[in-house]
Design a protein around this nucleic acid. Structure first.
Length: 829
DNA sequence: GCAAGGTC
């Protein structure tokens, strides 16, 4: 039996299909598809099925000096056990094995991993390697007709990368995490790809922070031909600067006003120059991963979402493999045949038919031609609208239309530039008109906005009106958007087509960036600074470039894996020698930056910093850094994760807060303003729970959701609350309840106000009515569903449990409930 | 519980 091993299931199925002429059978072994026909079996891996790691004795971060990892042994272990097990079973039964993984460096390494698994159970059989650049009948049959040998040098190049990435990444990650005391989920990560990417963002942020805006002025006028019904058009003032270049920005206010005065003194302008030219606008190249992400991002998809949809469309068979660097269609793609598949389709058919009418169809080509996968294009299989979500359809249509664009004709623009003079000042207008829509007719994602400038002739007099002097400011450079960042990574050679978008996600997960476009946090700034000071290589693109060169040397036999990894280990040893003395300093800086990321501004009570904190129950609130000396807190909305914005509130000097909750994301604003607006309505009296101990008071509050309650001013430290009706205006009367010393409330809704009375009495009556349902704990005054839930979490589910409990331990276990309050409940129960 | 690279 011949065993054929491919990089993924999809490739296994297609290769089996080609080699068997469609006659293969599919079976499943350990959940892995195996394709069988006439003495052959074909199985797909799932990329790497083994991974590198340190032995278990290195796994406790606190027990191992990070520098010890540099010379630690590195083991290979199965990461996809079921696939490895299946491969072992099939290998025992095989008489010959053929490795048919992707034709690139990582594919060679994956092939070597398979080779070792086969050899481990079967020492004798020949193991061959076939290489083909696309899975087509021609290429595959040719490759199998003349099998080759595995390239162990090329595989070793990939192994060197694995080893270097692991050692540098793990050792530096552990060092920074330990120095800052950030273990567990909040470790501080460093890596050859993520750290240079982060540095790109941090460098840009530094430019933005250092930016000093400058004022300038621009002048605009309306010009109109003398005809009766002529439409006016915009023109802009310009002058020649010291180097005789045209300039529109006027840097001096007096100069700008002088120009304004001059232009205001006349109502005519004379055309002095007319320049007409046509420009051809060539259609775009086929999609590689990066350009696909860029186009999808222009229609509102994040990099992650775009790739996830593309992967689904690929798995379903509608588009080709979405991870590719290739921008040249392979020879076996016949555009006419593919266009034919769309003929007759209700929404995509007409454009395909139009394209087929051209005399000759010649697809565009990009600069990069690789051998592993074709550019992303539709397969010819078209989903029905019901088969896919709206988003999937939108992305599918983008891929189809991009393919259309690559086989469509050039567009042609006509540019018209007019220069006029008025009161010795120069004016210019730039018009453009799309004369031949070309590929834009089938690819509507690029702007085709025209700018109207009429036909004028030299010497013609135009009327001049509506002079506007606009004061502007130079703007700081813009942050990288996700797709721009991916393009930059690609041009610097950082990461791969499959990992760049994941790297960006990783930066979000690690707390290094927030919001979109990604903005680096103070933590990110501190980590990049630490790396720049002590381990410059790991934040530089240089490290990847050197690694690429070293890998080429290994692949060509000029160097060995040991040479390259040995040298890399020495470099890292040097870095750790420097780092040792600065451990505390680095840790302090990172810890301080972590606090900066949570800082809202000064505490109105004590002047220390207010920080965004998280209660033991996971909810967010604002608390003072001076705690426990200062117990000032401000509530935050219960939905979402707070993001601190750059904007600050003028009244309180606090940063505004945005609550990130997917589609329900909203800007909360200054928490103190919100608390003042929402919360503290009229104060009713002392809080029965914490009034004695902490001076808590009851107030009428309105929540973000619009619902109202009587609650303690010390929320969230004290969660005493009483319900209020949703509707009607609440009036606080002068009459007081003798038992609870609170004012009686009136509710104005409808024609007649109704008496709610003392809010505690009202609640007790309500509880009495409701007491049959729910926990009997709810019959206690001031105890709502939320408190019942918390008590239940501490093991107290009924009044009986409560009477048996120790008040101090309950107070210790349950946030916002004091021992005194428990005692008062016990007395009543 | 570290990286980056395959793949899902």
């Amino acid at each position: 039996m011949e065993l054929i091993i491919t990089e993924k299931d999809n490739a296994a199925r297609r290769i089996a299909d080609i080699l068997s002429g469609g006659s293969m059978d599919a079976t499943r072994e350990n959940g892995v598809n195996v394709y069988e026909w006439g003495g052959k079996r074909c199985v797909g891996l799932s990329g790497h099925v083994v991974g590198v790691d340190f032995p278990p004795e290195y796994s406790d971060w606190r027990d191992v000096e990070p520098a010890e990892l540099i010379d630690a042994t590195i083991e290979k272990e199965a990461t996809k056990e079921n696939i490895v097990a299946t491969l072992r079973i099939l290998s025992r039964q095989a008489e010959i094995a053929t490795i048919a993984t992707d034709y690139d460096r990582e594919g060679e390494l994956i092939g070597k991993e398979a080779y070792e698994i086969v050899r481990d159970v079967n020492e004798e059989i020949p193991i061959r390697r076939v290489r083909f650049s696309s899975i087509t009948e021609n290429e595959v049959t040719n490759a199998f007709a003349e099998p080759e040998e595995l390239d162990f040098d090329l595989a070793a190049a990939g192994e060197a990368r694995q080893i270097i990435d692991l050692i540098w990444g793990a050792a530096l990650t552990r060092f920074l995490s330990l120095s800052a005391g950030q273990l567990g989920n909040d470790f501080i990560s460093v890596g050859r790809v993520q750290s240079p990417t982060l540095k790109l963002l941090v460098d840009r942020e530094r430019e933005i922070e250092a930016f000093d805006p400058e004022d300038y002025w621009e002048l605009f006028v309306d010009l109109t031909k003398a005809d009766d019904d002529a439409e006016s058009f915009d023109a802009q003032y310009f002058y020649l600067d010291e180097e005789d270049n045209e300039a529109e920005r006027v840097w001096d206010e007096a100069d700008a006003e002088a120009a304004f005065e001059d232009l205001s003194s006349t109502s005519e302008a004379t055309v002095v120059d007319v320049n007409r030219r046509t420009r051809t606008d060539a259609p775009p190249a086929p999609f590689n991963t990066t350009q696909f992400i860029r186009a999808a991002s222009a229609i509102g998809y994040s990099a992650k979402r775009a790739m996830s949809i593309a992967e689904d469309l690929y798995t379903a068979g509608y588009i080709t493999y979405p991870r590719t660097d290739n921008t040249v269609y392979p020879d076996d793609l016949d555009p006419e045949v593919l266009l034919d598949d769309f003929v007759g389709h209700p929404t995509l058919g007409e454009d395909a038919e139009d394209l087929l009418e051209a005399d000759e169809i010649r697809p565009t080509e990009g600069d990069e031609e690789t051998t592993d996968h074709p550019p992303i294009h539709p397969t010819g299989e078209i989903p029905t609208r019901g088969d896919v979500s709206d988003d999937e359809w939108e992305v599918f249509e983008l891929v189809v239309r991009r393919f259309y664009a690559t086989v469509a004709e050039d567009a042609v623009w006509e540019h018209l530039r007019v220069v006029a003079e008025a009161a010795d000042r120069s004016l210019k207008a730039n018009g453009k008109r799309l004369v031949e829509p070309g590929y834009h007719a089938v690819y509507p994602y690029f702007s085709t906005t025209e700018n109207y400038v009429p036909d004028v002739t030299e010497g013609e007099t135009l009327s001049l009106t509506d002079i506007e002097l606009e004061e502007k400011q130079t703007q700081p450079p813009r942050r990288y958007g996700q797709s721009r960042l991916i393009e930059t990574m690609e041009s610097m050679g950082i990461g791969t087509k499959s990992t760049r978008h994941e790297t960006i996600e990783k930066l979000y997960d690690r707390g290094y960036v927030e919001s979109d476009p990604p903005r680096p946090t103070r933590l990110a700034m501190a980590v990049v600074e630490a790396a720049e000071n002590y381990a410059d290589r790991v934040v530089s693109e240089e490290m990847t470039a050197q690694l690429e060169a070293d890998m080429d040397a290994i692949a060509s036999g000029e160097a060995t894996l040991e040479d390259v990894t040995g040298e890399s280990r020495e470099m890292l040893e040097d870095i750790f020698a420097e780092l040792a003395d600065s451990r505390e300093e680095i840790g302090d800086h990172i810890r301080k930056s972590l606090k900066d990321d949570k800082r809202l501004g000064p505490c109105p009570e004590c002047g220390e910093d207010l920080l965004v904190r998280r209660s033991r129950y996971g909810s967010y609130f604002v608390g003072c850094d001076g705690y426990p000396d200062c117990e000032h807190t401000i509530p935050l909305p219960s939905t979402g994760k707070p993001l601190i914005l750059e904007e600050t509130c003028e009244d309180h000097e606090l940063h505004e807060v945005k609550m990130l909750a997917g589609r329900q994301t909203f800007v909360h604003g200054c928490p103190l303003c919100k608390a003042e607006e929402a919360g503290e309505g009229p104060i009713l009296g002392e809080c029965p729970d914490c009034g004695d101990e902490h001076d808590g008071e009851l107030a009428v509050k309105t929540l973000q959701s619009g619902s109202r309650l009587v609650g303690c001013t010390r929320y969230p430290d004290c969660e005493y609350s009483l319900p209020l009706p949703r509707r009607g205006e609440i009036e606080v009367t002068d009459e007081r309840c003798e038992e609870h010393d609170l004012p009686e409330l009136l509710v104005h809704s409808g024609d007649e106000p109704w008496e709610l009375g003392c809010p505690i009495c009202n609640y007790q009556e309500f509880q009495a009515r409701e007491s049959e349902s729910g926990s009997d704990l709810e019959s206690l005054e001031g105890v709502g569903a939320k408190t019942v839930e918390k008590l239940a979490a501490a093991g107290i589910e009924s009044l009986d449990d409560l009477t048996d409990a120790d008040p101090d331990s309950v107070a210790a276990d349950v946030d916002g409930i004091s021992a005194d309050r428990v005692r008062s409940w016990q007395a009543k129960a």
